[in-house]
Amino acid sequence: MHRTIFTTPGVNRLLRAFSIAFLRLKGWRVEGALPSEHARCVLIAAPHTSNWDLPYTLMVAFALRLNIHWMGKRQLFRFPFGPVMRWLGGLAVNREQSTNLVAASAEAIQASPGPWQLVVPPEGTRSKTRHWKTGFYWIAVTAQVPIVLAYMDFAEKRSGLGPVFHPTGDIDADMREIKAFYAPFRGRNAAEFDAS
């Protein structure tokens, strides 16, 4: 595994202090904690409605002492930004090509020698959509890890980790339960999020 901003010695401590100070200055509350027994997991990232979600997600991850990796469209990884995006924990995804993303993501989680959290926005886009993609669910099932319901509520200025969810295999029932948890939250562009 390549080194990221979260595993770079010295940088991690400095950016954690900065993140906590910045979030407090802006009036944000960071809530919850990742149970040590679930250090490898899939984190749902919702609502996802703005490019501002990424910097706030990184700061919250520092505050919570996470080691996150996130998926982004491959255009974000074009030269000269690719190395920086990967250092920030990014994994390039080609949306135009059908690939075995679930298996590759599950393998990355299982191959990690230590804590490793994969952040996946279920909407798959910042634009409004009623249909949530189920990739995050099948990655967790394949990797045999839980799903942690992470959230970012711009209206209430709070972000953090909610319940740990263990997939039952009944995806329809599980998705209803997961979406119900996210219904109260509002993204930066609230009209773009639909958890119904």
Results as ranks from 00 to 15, higher is better:
Val119Cys: 14
Ala21Ile: 01
Gly169Phe: 03
Leu76Glu: 06
His2Ala: 09
Ile178Tyr: 08
Ala183Val: 12
Ala104Trp: 01
Phe81Gln: 05
Thr129Val: 12
Asn100Gln: 15
Ile147Glu: 12
Glu123Arg: 02
Thr4Asp: 04
Thr134Met: 12
Val164Phe: 09
Met71Arg: 01
Gln110Trp: 00
Arg65Leu: 01
Arg176His: 11
Tyr56Leu: 13
Pro9Ile: 01
Arg130Asp: 14
Ala21Pro: 07
Ile5Pro: 06
Lys179Tyr: 06
Phe81Trp: 13
Thr129Asp: 05
Ile171Glu: 13
Ala180Lys: 12
Arg16Cys: 07
Asn67Glu: 11
Asn189Gln: 14
Thr129Pro: 04
Ala180His: 11
Leu76Gln: 08
Ser105Lys: 08
Met152Cys: 13
Thr57Leu: 14
Gln75Phe: 01
Phe154Gln: 07
Phe181Ile: 00
Ala21Ser: 14
Trp138Ser: 11
Thr125Asp: 05
Gly10Ser: 09
Val148Asn: 11
Phe185Leu: 05
Ala183Lys: 14
Gln144Leu: 10
Ser36Val: 14
Asn94His: 13
Gly27Phe: 10
Asn100Ala: 14
Val93His: 06
Ser196Ile: 00
Lys128Glu: 12
Val119Asn: 03
Arg126Trp: 03
Gln110Leu: 10
Asp174Gln: 08
Gln110Phe: 00
Lys179Glu: 01
Pro80Gly: 07
Ala103Ile: 06
Pro163Val: 00
Ser159Val: 00
Ala21Phe: 05
